[in-house]
Design a protein around this nucleic acid. Structure first.
Lengths: 194, 194
DNA sequence: GTCTATACAAAGATAGAC
DNA sequence: GTCTATCTTTGTATAGAC
C-alpha cells in the first residue's frame, strides 16, 4: 500500500479505510481529521462537503480497480484463469481482516441513505466489475479454461454477489473461511482446470 | 403482512422497514416517530435507547425467521427441496423491491458501527441461517434430492453469502435479475431435480 | 493550506405535565 | 402512554486570522 504525503490524498486514504470499517453515515469529519492529524476545516478546504469527499473516495477506488483490471485484461501473457485469480485477490485480502469489507460493499448496505453523487459512483463500480467479469468468463470459455452452461452475464453477477456477500457475512460472523470457500466453490463451478 | 395496532410493535415495524431501506446509522427517532404517527419521547417510553430499539428489531426479525424455518424443517410432508425453496422466498420478495434488502444484510454493511447488543443479534441471525441451511442440505443429500461434493457447511455459507450479496448489489445497480439468477444458479449447483 | 472560533441543525435522551 | 419543553452532544459547514 503506497503511503501518500499529499494531504488531499491522505484524507482520501483515511476516509476510505474508515468507510470500509464503519460505513459512510457512521463517520464524521472529526474522525477523518483525527486520523490524518489535521483539523476539521482543513478537510473542507480540500473537499467542500461530505458528499464531495465521499464521491472522491469512491471515484478513486473505482478508477484504481478499473486501471488494474484493464491492465490484466490487455496483457496477452495472462490467461483468463490468472485474470480471475487476480480479481479475487483483494477480496481474499479483506477476507483475512477482522473488520474490513469492500468499500462499495459497505456503501451498498446503506445505499439509499447516500448522496446521489456517491450512489452513482457505487453503481458504476458494480457495473464495471460485472462487465469485466463477463468478458473474462467469455474469454476463458473460448480458450477452454472455463466450462459453464449459464449466460456469462448471469455468472458474472453471481461471482460479484458471492464475493461481496462473503465479505459482509464474514465480518458479521467473525468466520474468516467465507472468502476461501466462496472462491473455491466459484472455481469449481467454472470447472477451472487451473 | 400482519398489521399491528400495538404501539410497541408498530414502532418495530417502522424501524425495521426504515433500516432495511436506509440502514441503522442513517435513521433517527424522528424518522420512526413520523412513520408511526407519534412523537420522539413516546418511542423512548417503549425502548429506552436507540441501541435497545435496534436490538429489539433484529431480535424479532431473527425469531420470526427461526420459527418459520423450524416449522418447515419439522414438517414431515416437506421435502428438502421445498424447504430450500421456502428459504429463498423472502429474498425473492425483497429482490423485487427497488430499495429493500434483508435487515441483517443492511446491518452487516455497517457492522462495526453498531452497538454491541445489535451486533450480537445480527451474528446470531447469520449463524442460525447457516446451521439451518446445512441441515437441509444434508437432508437433501441423504434423500437424493441434492447432489454436491463440497462440505455442507461450506455450501450453506455460500448460499447465504450469495443471497445477501445479490440483494445489496441488486439495490445498488437497480438490476432486479440478481435474485432470480442467483437462485437459479444455486439450484443448478445443488443438482436439484425438483 | 491550516488554524481558532463559531454558526446552525439534528441527534439521542430526560423532566415533568396531562 | 403520550405529550411539550429542554438539555447536551455531535454533526456539517462557514468566517476570517495567520
Amino acid at each position: 500500500m503506497k503511503v501518500n504525503h499529499n494531504t488531499a490524498e491522505r484524507i482520501l486514504d483515511i476516509a476510505q479505510e474508515l468507510i470500509q470499517r464503519r460505513g459512510y453515515n457512521a463517520i464524521s469529519f472529526t474522525d477523518i481529521a483525527d486520523g490524518v492529524g489535521i483539523k476539521k476545516p482543513s478537510i473542507v478546504h480540500h473537499y467542500p462537503s461530505k458528499a464531495a469527499l465521499g464521491k472522491a473516495v469512491v471515484k478513486r477506488y473505482r478508477e484504481t480497480f478499473a486501471s488494474a483490471l484493464n491492465s490484466i485484461a490487455n496483457d496477452p501473457e495472462k490467461t483468463a484463469f490468472e485474470a480471475f485469480d487476480f480479481y479475487c485477490t483483494p477480496y481474499l485480502d479483506y477476507g483475512k481482516t477482522r473488520d474490513m469489507v469492500c468499500l462499495c460493499g459497505a456503501l451498498a448496505g446503506e445505499f439509499t441513505a447516500l448522496p446521489k453523487s456517491v450512489q452513482k459512483e457505487v453503481s458504476q463500480f458494480f457495473e464495471a466489475h460485472i462487465s469485466w467479469l463477463q468478458m473474462i468468463l467469455e474469454r476463458g470459455k473460448n480458450s477452454g479454461e472455463f466450462r459453464f452452461s449459464e449466460a456469462s452475464h448471469a455468472m458474472a453477477m453471481h461471482i460479484l454477489d458471492s464475493l461481496q456477500g462473503a465479505l459482509i457475512v464474514k465480518r458479521a460472523t467473525g468466520n474468516f473461511e467465507h472468502l476461501d470457500k466462496t472462491i473455491e466453490l466459484l472455481k469449481e463451478k467454472l470447472c477451472v482446470v487451473g
